[in-house]
Simulated assay, not measured.
Amino acid sequence: MDIQAFGVEEWLNVWENDAVYDIAGSSIASMTLDEILELGDVGKETLLAQVLGKTMNYGWIEGSPEFKEEVAKLYQGVQPTQILQTNGATGANHLALYALVELGDHVISMYPTYQQLVDIPRSFGAEVSLWQIQEEQGWLPSLEELRSLIRPQTKLICINNANNPTGAIMDRAYLEELVKIAREVGAYILADEVYQPLEEGLEIPAIVDLYERGISTNSLSKTYSVPGVRVGWVVANADLSDRFRKYRDYTMICAGVFDDFLATHVLRHRDLVLERNRSIVYRNLELVKKWVEQEPRVSVIFPRHVSTSFIKLDIPEDTEIFCIRLLQEQGVLLVPGNRFDKPGYARLGYCTQTDILEQGLVRLSQFLRQYDA
């Protein structure tokens, strides 16, 4: 089995630790452990006592009942038995693909997207058709193109909603049409849903709530600001969940008792976390909008309060070389668009700490002025 290097992770592994102003990430500013323990009315000392009293065994293999109950509240009519805890959404996506994709299968994946959804099926010997996102359609792929790509034997359609890197959202009407197309051939839909939009009044349904063959994956890493616990989950119908259980036993045992405890605590107080994060997203997105208005070499299709954005750079230079020089000379980290097969663009993770964003944008503009002479 062979697999392509993971472009974004390869970039971050090399350059992330050199950044002074990291505006490349796609999480909303990560919480400290102190902030997590301050959530709710239980009190930090009580929570610390509970942590210190934990026996360091394997804990609940699939996730504690409390964890599953909190996750189930995020969906409509999902039972806790349909939920499997994983090592982040990365583990959830891998588990679903590992359990479903076989040699010779036909898979359709939106593209570009999180690279797992394309290259893991390829590594298993599937034929993967790329369902290209279109800038002129707000970075959404065309449903008409999907109809031309799908076959009677298509097994799986992979989407990332909202999309990484662009932040584009498939709304309910779009998803319902997507489900209709998939249902005609009995294809599964795997939806990586880690980027929950935080726009007031905008509710995007999970694919598992719309489609009997829908598979939803998510985690604490993006919308909930706790990537450090490495906890995610996969949700599907009862039969699929049972299938995933068998394959899961070959990939992980448990997430760990501390991780489960913290993940459950965060989800139990998700309203407080989302209130915090909505404030960050709104404030920082307004800063980016004002910056783009004043920056002639940058344009962007703004995300709808999703934590990742994809800026277009008007520069006479290879994007990756530009990003390396930007980091070395200004300490500012972006992810070059060629890591998503989109040269001329860059992922701007605007939901970092506000002061880091402000200083990073100032330095980015200063760096862009070299082309104006």
Rank of each mutant, 00 (worst) to 15 (best):
Q294T: 07
L143H: 07
Q370E: 14
D41P: 04
D314A: 10
I324Q: 01
L95T: 01
M252P: 03
E177G: 12
Y111W: 09
E66Q: 09
A72H: 00
I108Q: 03
C254H: 15
R248T: 04
A168Q: 13
V101Y: 02
R339L: 07
I133W: 03
V101E: 00
P165R: 01
E69I: 14
F244W: 04
R304M: 07
D318F: 08
I280Y: 08
G138F: 03
G331A: 06
V298F: 06
A263C: 00
R283W: 06
E275K: 14
E203S: 15
E66W: 08
R297K: 04
E199C: 02
E16D: 11
L149Q: 11
L39T: 01
G59T: 06
R243S: 11
K222I: 01
F6E: 04
D22K: 03
G186I: 09
I23S: 03
G331I: 05
T223V: 05
T217L: 09
E127P: 12
Y114R: 02
Q79F: 02
G344Y: 02
V20P: 00
N87S: 13
A168S: 15
M110T: 04
E193I: 11
D239N: 13
E45T: 07
G88S: 11
D2T: 09
R147F: 10
L198Y: 14
Y247A: 10
H94A: 13
S64I: 02
C323W: 10
